[in-house]
Design a protein around this nucleic acid. Structure first.
Lengths: 96, 96
DNA sequence: CGTACGTTTCAAGCATGGCTGATTCAACGG
DNA sequence: CCGTTGAATCAGCCATGCTTGAAACGTACG
């Protein structure tokens, strides 16, 4: 079901509403990290972490840049703002 | 998987990360509504709406009160606050 | 009382999406 | 080059949770 009308907001929230992805975003909210560093803070198989990072990339919440053999992940600049606005009632709360 | 550490936050976000439930919360953020009124704004089968309302009730985002034949639903007082605090990075953003 | 209405509950079906193991790719080092 | 390391991709399994139809419940009204 999709019900149209707030698909983007819901998609964004679905991206955060996962234990692994939540932990990744929380870790990145502090500072940029390479995948290997993320693996220390988010104890799941490399496979799985990569899968969740892909989901986050596709929603635009996170951006990746290669640095030699490593890949750094960082929160997108507008990530936290977009999340805040995706919550129901946020339009009213922020007095739009 | 649960990864512990932010289970409550994730559970709350999972509750909002659904098209129907998002629409319900958005509608209730304006004013209290009975189920019949909700059905006009959230076009899904009564069955289904009831199921989603139950989910929202169980997370404490919404409270129900019977008024004669009807049942009124309202946002819990702390619903929007809890949602805001459930977002990753919110601890930092609010300068805790 | 019996019927109608609003709402919930139940017992299924079904699909999406998370998880896993194995494979592939890209970059560096010897 | 060749092996190693960091990371992504692929195919497939499996479970959770959304969806649906039918039935049950509570309340009002005739």
């Amino acid at each position: 079901m999709t019900l149209g009308g707030a698909d983007d907001e819901v998609a964004l929230l679905q991206a955060v509403a996962d234990s692994v992805r939540w932990a990744v975003l929380e870790a990145l909210s502090d500072r940029q990290l390479c995948v290997c560093d993320l693996q220390e803070r988010v104890p799941v198989a490399g496979n799985l972490l990569s899968y969740h990072l892909k989901v986050l990339r596709e929603t635009g919440l996170v951006v990746a840049t290669r640095r030699g053999r490593w890949i750094d992940y960082a929160l997108a600049d507008d990530a936290l703002a977009r999340l805040g606005q995706a919550l129901p009632g946020s339009r009213r709360a922020v007095r739009s």
